[in-house]
Design a protein around this nucleic acid. Structure first.
Lengths: 333, 333
DNA sequence: TCGATTACTGAAATCGTTTACAGCGCTCTC
DNA sequence: GAGAGCGCTGTAAACGATTTCAGTAATCGA
């Protein structure tokens, strides 16, 4: 491996000069600059990242901790982050499967000295509490977590509003028995979406029937299973609101297997508006969230912290919009 | 920031001892070990990654260069890589939008000293040639590239076989006018898939009609556009084979907009079998590729290189299987 | 002609670790 | 009782860069 010393020796200068040339510093004569540049190119020199970040105390890398990597939701987030981060010359160090406190802890430790900041998405409320311990080591942006974590920048989706809008729409279309396929119990987003659903029903004086709320885990399979469960009910719902699109998609396939027509026999709605929602047949009504924007905003916030140093923590809310497609019967007439 | 020195001072030992405790080295008395561990925990010490990898010459990180991050294909690859890599205690440093030679070059430079090896996916054939220059700096696995790059480990999909199988199936179902929505011109996978399509037609003595081959770019939109183009033909095809699923999905939506029924009026097939293919309506016939496996194998190969040092380069072929669903009319009767 | 200024370059300290080597106090052996 | 061996610990040299500070030669002003 060719180091700065090799270049220095070969060019007949000191390592300091090579460093200056590489970093476009002042006070290097044009001739020296040229000669060093040539030698560096010939030897194929590029500085050693670790050595560099040891002394400069910056790595130009951001850590991204995700609970999972499965499905379009996460890939969109990464895409959003990468897009912003790349423009600023940063890279991202990804690590997934971090739900529990211990795993997050371990990941954080192992990233010390390798990243300048972190974007952490852990919907598990418990895990977030423990994060507080790491205050001060480096900037952190919390994604989709508990916005009450005043110790960090946070970005959350308007889950409650979104769920209310969709539930209201279903009610407006005349549905009274609306089922909800809920997300993971300890997930913050899921809880908020469920809450929005409940509030709206109550507001519309529709009695809450707990048998219509089925637990899911955000996966397609769980959506499928939830429908089987709902169809076994004595008094079936006329509409199904899934807490995310993946489960809605699973629901659609289960309904098809049971020869139920959507939206005629059963209206279906999802949440997130992942790219493929529109390609479903029928196209899926859902609550649109600009997922990649979620990542992009988080990245931007983090970069801001890095540039500006300490500053008051921000708590962003990403708004949602109702996207009515065919799966719930279309717009209210 | 708390360093090893702080811990050493606080515990009344030398930094060497702290290091030994941290790395579970021998020859530390139980009492010292305990005391140091306590102090480290109290101070919240964790070693500085850059400093550590500077001296140990390992980073426990692998670089992943992708052309793009859009869509399920890439997220599946990352998932496959992450899964394997995590088990070995590694992280991944992701960087996307690297198609051209220069971009790849820049990314490689910026990753020197930050990763122990790289997985590079660049279907652009030109870019691959230039990669040769970097031989020897660190192990590299080429994904889906030109398997002839004898200088690296490579993993490729059996594109040719897969395309042949699907085309054969369409022929067997009685189709004679089969259109192909091809992928990007300079993409290796795309080229091979197109070649498989052509070989099969020739083998079956079906005349190649170049107006039936439409250029796409692997995006849903391009699939949509391609169909519009095909439908404008005087003599329409009866089947459409898209070089990847995304384009097939775009094709399906275009056909629906034109009130053509699939598979009755037009058979459609894709390639890749991305997770959502089965959820299409009608479910999409496609050539199954275990995408996450592609990433997983690449990661495994890379880890092997890191452990074993120099070894002969491997050239893996990932096999494909035909997945016949409703969109092409089902199995041959 | 001399001192000051300017333009450039080099020596050396530094970042936070790991690790080879040396040292120290014991115990054991002959 | 001297030397060897053992168990533990500390000193100091790396790793590859950046950066401060000092030094040198050339130019300038008086």
């Amino acid at each position: 491996m060719v180091t700065i010393k090799d270049v220095a020796r070969e060019a007949g200068v000191s390592v300091a000069t090579v460093s200056r040339v590489w970093n476009d510093a002042d006070f290097v004569s044009p001739e020296t600059r040229q000669r060093v540049a040539e030698v560096a190119a010939r030897l194929g020199y590029s500085p050693h990242g670790a050595a560099r970040s040891l002394i400069t105390r910056t790595t130009f890398a951001l850590g991204v901790l995700l609970p999972d990597l499965y499905g379009e939701f996460f890939s969109e987030i990464i895409r959003g982050i990468d897009h912003v981060v790349r423009a600023a010359g940063y890279h991202i160090l990804v690590s997934s499967s971090h739900e529990s406190k211990d795993e997050i802890d371990a990941a954080l430790r192992s990233m010390r000295g390798r990243v300048d900041g972190m974007i952490i998405m852990s919907s598990d409320l418990e895990a977030q509490r423990t994060l507080r311990t790491l205050q001060g080591s480096f900037p952190v942006v919390l994604l989709n977590g508990d916005a009450e974590s005043k110790a960090f920048d946070t970005i959350t989706i308007e889950n409650h509003e979104g769920a209310r809008a969709m539930t209201r729409h279903l009610v407006a279309r005349g549905h009274r028995r609306i089922a909800m396929i809920a997300g993971p119990e300890r997930n913050h987003d899921a809880a908020e979406r469920l809450r929005g659903y409940r509030t709206t029903l109550t507001e519309n004086r529709i009695e809450l029937d707990e048998s219509l709320v089925v637990q899911g885990d955000f996966s397609e399979l769980s959506g499928h299973l939830a429908v089987t469960q709902l169809l076994a009910l004595e008094s079936r719902p006329t509409a199904i609101f899934a807490a995310n699109d993946s489960m809605a998609i699973g629901a659609l396939s289960a309904l098809r297997e049971n020869d139920l027509r959507v939206p005629h026999d059963m209206a279906v709605a999802g949440f997130d508006d992942i790219p493929l929602a529109r390609y479903m047949n029928p196209p899926l009504s859902t609550v649109h969230v600009d997922i990649s924007q979620l990542g992009a905003r988080a990245a931007a916030l983090l970069l801001l912290s890095l540039q500006k140093g300490i500053r008051p923590h921000e708590h962003m809310q990403l708004s949602t919009t109702l996207v009515i497609r065919a799966s719930c019967g279309g717009a209210v007439s």
